Computed example of a mutant assay.
Amino acid sequence: MVLTPINELIADSWQVDIQKLFETFANESDEINKNLYDSLYTYVLQKRQENILNYSSFVI
């Protein structure tokens, strides 16, 4: 099952339903596809974290 073309995931990580992406990863039986969905989930999550950390008003 293909959720969204990869170039759309790369363009704007906030448009991705990350919960659906994780559920697809968790329910995938094919190991190659499971690894792909895991990588996409990790990429989208990292991009979101990167965007949050780059906000000028973000303080740790």
Rank of each mutant, 00 (worst) to 15 (best):
I18F: 11
Y55G: 14
V44R: 01
K34G: 01
N51D: 10
Q19P: 00
K47Q: 13
L45T: 06
Y43D: 00
V44D: 01
I52F: 15
I52L: 15
V2R: 13
L53P: 00
Y43P: 01
M1P: 00
Y55V: 05
V16M: 03
N33G: 00
L53K: 08
I6E: 09
L3P: 02
E28I: 06
I32D: 13
D38I: 07
L3W: 07
I10K: 05
S56D: 13
T24G: 01
N7G: 05
L40D: 01
P5E: 12
L40C: 00
F25E: 06
L3S: 01
D38P: 00
F58Y: 09
N35C: 11
I60G: 13
T42Q: 11
N7S: 07
K34F: 02
E8C: 04
D12F: 11
L40G: 01
E28N: 06
Q46I: 12
I60T: 15
M1A: 02
E31V: 04
F22S: 10
N54V: 04
P5G: 05
D17A: 08
L53I: 07
S57V: 01
L53N: 03
I60H: 10
K34H: 03
Y43A: 05
N27Y: 14
T4N: 08
V44W: 02
N33A: 04
M1K: 07
Q15Y: 10
V59P: 02
T4Q: 15
L53C: 04
V44N: 01
I6M: 05
I32G: 08
L53F: 13
T24K: 13
V16Y: 07
I32C: 01
Q19V: 15
K20C: 11
L45S: 14
E28V: 07
T24M: 13
V59R: 05
L40N: 02
Q19R: 14
V59F: 03
E28G: 02
E28Y: 06
T42K: 04
L45A: 12
W14P: 00
Q15D: 12
V16H: 02
Q19M: 12
V2P: 09
E28P: 03
A26R: 10
F58I: 02
M1V: 06
Y55M: 14
N35D: 11
Q49N: 10
Y55P: 03
E23T: 02
Y37S: 01
K47W: 00
I10T: 04
L45P: 00
S56Q: 12
L3G: 07
N54W: 07
E23Y: 12
F58M: 08
E23D: 06
S39D: 06
K47T: 10
T42F: 09
Y55L: 15
E8I: 05
Q15H: 15
F58R: 02
L9T: 08
S13V: 11
D17H: 12
N27V: 04
I6L: 15
N27H: 13
V44A: 09
Q15A: 15
L36M: 12
N33F: 12
N33P: 03
L40S: 01
L40P: 01
I10W: 07
V2A: 09
T24S: 04
L3K: 09
S39F: 10
F25Q: 13
T42S: 14
V59A: 05
L3T: 02
D30H: 08
L9F: 07
N51K: 15
E28H: 07
T42A: 06
S56M: 14
T24Q: 11
S57W: 04
L9S: 06
L9G: 02
